[in-house]
C-alpha cells in the first residue's frame, strides 16, 4: 500500500503553535494537525510513499515514534481525506 498526499495546491497551512491549521480546498474543511502529521504531509508532497519508506524519510530528519504510531497517524490523515491509500505500483 502506498500513500498519496493531496496535491500541494489543495492545501493552505497556517502555523498556530503548537498546532498547524490546514485548510483543504476540495473539502472546504479545516484540520488542526500536531507533529508528525504536518511533516508526514510534507514528506509525501513529492510523491506517494509506502509506510516504511515514509518512516525512513522522517526518521532521518528527527526523532520519531514507533512504526505503529505512524500507521495510526496515517489512518487519521486518510480518514480526514488529506491522504489517499492506493495499491502499491
Amino acid at each position: 500500500m502506498r500513500f498519496r498526499a493531496a496535491p500541494a495546491d489543495a492545501l493552505l497551512q497556517a502555523s498556530l503553535d503548537p498546532f498547524t491549521a490546514v485548510f483543504h480546498r476540495p473539502s472546504g474543511q479545516t484540520h488542526l494537525l500536531v507533529s508528525p502529521a504536518p511533516e508526514m504531509l510534507a514528506a509525501l508532497a513529492d510523491g506517494p510513499l509506502s509506510l516504511s519508506d515514509l518512516h525512513d524519510a522522517l526518521a532521518a530528519a528527527f526523532q520519531l515514534e514507533d512504526a505503529e504510531g505512524l500507521a495510526d497517524r496515517m489512518a487519521e490523515l486518510v480518514a480526514a481525506g488529506l491522504v489517499t491509500a492506493e495499491p502499491a505500483a
Partner: peptide
Amino acid sequence: GGSEGFVRLTTASTNYTGLGEAGFRTLT
C-alpha cells in the same frame, strides 16, 4: 495562544465553515 484562540473563534463564528477559504484566511 494561537491554537486556542483559533479554536475558540471557529466555535464562536456562525459562518466560518460556510466562507471556506476566505474564512480560513481571515481567521488565521
